[in-house]
C-alpha cells in the first residue's frame, strides 16, 4: 500500500513536471524582415531575445522590423565594421567562444574561453578585443560563488592575455581576490579603463596593456565605457536598494573628475555603449534596449524591445 502511494506520487509529480517543462512559453512576436545582417553604417546591432541570434535595425527606426542572422551570441560588439561575438558554449561545462567576424559576419578567428559570457568589447579601430566571463568555484572559502576572468586579444600582433590578473596596481599589494572586468580601450589601443573588484569593493582603474601597470581612479564604479571623444567614462555605480541590480549609471568627466547621475533610475547591469558623444544605450533584462542622454537630463526611451547587448556601426 505504502509502495503504491509512492509510485502514484512519482507518476503524478513526473507528469506534472513534464507538463510544466513542455508548456509553451508565452509567444513573443517581433516583426522581422528578410535581408542579410551586415555591419554597415547606421545599423544598430543587438542580440535578439526571441532567437538568441544577432540581429539589426536601422538606428533611424529602431522599433521597426528587424533582420535576424544565424549567428548565436550572448554579447556582441561592433567597431570599425568588425564584430566580436561572445557565444555561450556551455555543454555542460560552463564555456564561451569569442568569435571575430567581418562586415558580412563571416568568421575570421575564434578563441575558446572558460566561463560563461558576460562582456565583450572592441577598441574604436577594432584592433583590441576584450571580454569578461564568469567562472564558478574559483573562491577558497565560498564554493559556488563566481569570479571573473577578463581576456585581452590584440588582433594585430595576435598577443593574447587569457586573464589579466597580473596587473600591478599603484599603491596596492597584489592579492588573490583581485578580479577585473569590463574593459574599454582608449583610441591609442594601449591605455584602457576597467573595473577592479577587491575586498568587496570596486574601483575604476586606468591601465596600460603594454607595461601591465594600473592605477585606481575612484571607488565604486563598474563596467566603464569610454565616450567616442575619449573625454568621459560612463559606468554603473552601486546604490542602496534591494533587487538584483542595485546600480545607477553615471558619467564621469575625465578632465574635471565630476560625475553626473543619468536620468535612468532603473538598475543598469550592462557595459553601456555610446551612440554618439551625447547618448548612451544599454539593455535591461526583459525590457529591451533603451537610450538616455549622457548629461543627466532628459528621460530614457526604448529603442528595441526584446533585445539586449546593443552596439552601433559608425563611420
Amino acid at each position: 500500500m505504502r509502495i503504491l502511494i509512492v509510485v502514484a506520487a512519482v507518476l503524478v509529480l513526473g507528469a506534472g513536471a513534464t507538463a510544466y517543462a513542455l508548456r509553451t512559453p508565452e509567444a513573443v512576436s517581433v516583426a522581422t524582415e528578410p535581408g542579410p545582417v551586415e555591419l554597415s553604417p547606421g545599423r544598430l546591432l543587438f542580440v535578439d531575445d526571441v532567437s538568441g541570434k544577432l540581429a539589426s535595425v536601422p538606428l533611424s527606426s529602431p522599433g521597426g522590423p528587424r533582420r535576424v542572422s544565424s549567428l548565436s551570441c550572448k554579447r556582441f560588439y561592433t567597431a570599425a565594421q568588425q564584430g566580436l561575438c561572445l557565444a555561450d558554449t556551455t555543454r555542460p561545462m560552463p564555456g564561451s567562444t569569442a568569435v571575430f567576424v567581418d562586415r558580412e559576419l563571416q568568421e575570421k578567428r575564434r578563441v575558446e574561453v572558460a566561463g560563461v559570457p558576460n562582456r565583450a568589447k572592441l577598441s574604436a579601430d577594432g584592433r583590441m578585443a576584450s571580454w569578461t566571463t564568469f567562472v564558478t568555484g574559483d573562491s577558497y572559502s565560498q564554493p559556488g560563488t563566481f569570479s571573473t576572468r577578463t581576456g585581452i586579444f590584440d588582433t594585430q600582433t595576435e598577443e593574447y592575455a587569457s586573464n589579466i590578473e597580473g596587473l600591478r596596481v599603484e599603491g596596492r599589494k597584489m592579492t588573490n581576490d583581485m578580479n577585473y572586468w569590463g574593459v574599454t580601450f582608449t583610441s591609442d589601443d594601449r591605455l584602457f579603463y576597467a573595473t577592479l573588484g577587491v575586498g568587496g569593493k570596486t574601483y575604476l582603474i586606468q591601465a596600460d596593456v603594454v607595461d601591465k601597470s594600473a592605477k585606481a581612479l575612484r571607488e565604486n564604479a563598474e563596467c566603464p565605457s569610454l565616450s567616442p571623444d575619449g573625454k568621459r567614462v560612463a559606468f554603473k555605480k552601486r546604490v542602496p536598494g534591494d533587487g538584483a541590480r542595485p546600480w545607477r549609471e553615471h558619467v564621469l568627466d575625465l578632465s574635471t573628475m565630476v560625475e553626473t547621475p543619468l536620468a535612468e533610475t532603473r538598475g543598469i547591469d550592462d557595459q553601456v555603449v555610446w551612440l554618439d558623444n551625447d547618448t548612451i544605450a544599454y539593455g535591461l533584462p526583459g525590457e529591451g534596449i533603451w537610450a538616455v542622454p549622457a548629461n543627466g537630463e532628459g528621460a530614457p526611451r526604448q529603442l528595441v524591445p526584446h533585445a539586449s547587448s546593443p552596439s552601433l556601426v559608425t563611420g
Partner: peptide, 21 residues
Amino acid sequence: LPLYLVLGLGFSPLQFGVLDG
C-alpha cells in the same frame, strides 16, 4: 544556482558572496 543567479537573473557575481557568510 550560481549560473541561475548570474545568467538567469543578472545578479552580479560578487554580490552574492555577501549573502552567503
